[in-house]
């Protein structure tokens, strides 16, 4: 079963004083996320990730198209009871303490009165918010602490489906590690996680599948492994002796020179050609090592395609 399904979901914003200039924030998006998956929604800043999330959350009405959440509509409070949402750069009632805030949200989400206190405490513990901070007003919180509170409020009511908009932002490396583990543990609990990010390593480490968006348009969806393998491998070649440098540059490869040592990354298909040149020019080959393709490579390739097409 699909946790999320969108059909040609589209959004135009009207801009300008008389609201006459339509700006397309999201081109028709058709996407399916099965239950139990961690799904990464990737794209550079301003790509339409947040717009997509607001449309899915029913905060903004689509210009056209539709979406289904847990086989229902987000307009249905019963469906909303089963989802959690962390907005981008969350801000909360800063006159409340973390405990007060989460208690309020527990009330709104329909957590039974008898369970609230325990649930709030355990959730705060789970996101690693320090014990002495839980009774401090949120106005005194750092950005990282607020992000933790934000994650806490998204999972507080044990939703089946969690939407996280840039969950790692504002966190230090340790915090990011912790949040990664937390997201992974949500999957272990059988929950579906849909999170947006522009940090590819996070997605690569966590996601079953990812979607890539740029300029409000979907550029590709698939499993991370599939995407990286489609790129083919690269090899890093390191040698000593400057005689070969000109010839290799002529092949269109970039060189990095450090003293007498030169290194270059070449596609697997070009490796033999490069090695032949090096031998012919009497360069001393120091090492030849395969470079693993990353999601970043795929991502950059996808972005390059579009900018090339646009130009």
């Amino acid at each position: 079963m699909n946790a999320i399904a969108t059909f040609a979901l589209e959004k135009f914003y009207l801009t300008g004083f008389w609201r006459k200039h339509p700006k397309q924030a999201l081109k028709p998006l058709t996407l399916e996320v099965p239950e139990g998956e961690i799904f990464g929604y990737l794209g550079p800043n301003g790509a339409g990730k947040t717009t997509t999330l607001r449309l899915l959350m029913g905060l903004v009405k689509p210009t056209a198209g539709s979406s289904k959440i847990l086989n229902g509509t987000i307009e249905d409070p019963a469906i909303r009871a089963q989802i959690g949402f962390l907005p981008e750069q969350p801000y909360f009632y800063d006159y409340l303490t973390a405990v007060e805030l989460l208690t309020y949200y527990a009330q709104l989400s329909g957590v039974p009165a008898g369970e609230r206190q325990r649930r709030v405490a355990s959730t705060l513990d789970r996101v690693g918010l320090a014990k002495d901070a839980v009774h401090t007003q949120l106005r005194k919180f750092s950005k990282g602490m607020l992000q933790r509170v934000g994650i806490a409020q998204a999972i507080l009511h044990q939703p089946k489906l969690v939407f996280l908009d840039e969950p790692m932002s504002g966190l230090d490396p340790i915090g990011r590690r912790e949040v990664r583990d937390l997201i992974a543990s949500l999957k272990d609990e059988g929950k579906t996680v849909f999170f947006s990010t522009h940090i590819l390593s996070d997605a690569e480490a966590l996601c079953d599948r990812v979607a890539i968006v740029a300029n409000g348009e979907l550029r590709g969806v698939g499993a991370v492994a599939e995407m990286t393998s489609s790129l083919g491998g690269n090899m890093e070649v390191v040698w000593e002796g400057e005689g070969a440098n000109e010839a290799i540059k002529a092949l269109g490869r970039e060189l990095r020179v450090a003293g007498a040592i030169t290194r270059s990354v070449v596609p697997e298909s070009m490796l033999n050609q490069v090695l032949d040149i090096l031998r012919a020019k009497n360069a001393r080959i120091i090492s030849v090592t395969p470079v693993r393709a990353t999601l970043e490579d795929y991502f950059l390739q996808k972005l390059a395609q579009t900018s090339g097409g646009a130009d």
Binding site: P77, R80, F85, P90, F92, S109, G150
Partner: peptide
């Protein structure tokens, strides 16, 4: 403005 409404309206609140 402060977007606190996001975390309220995405709960079962009309």
């Amino acid at each position: 403005d402060k977007r606190t409404v996001y975390t309220v309206l995405t709960r079962p609140v009309q």
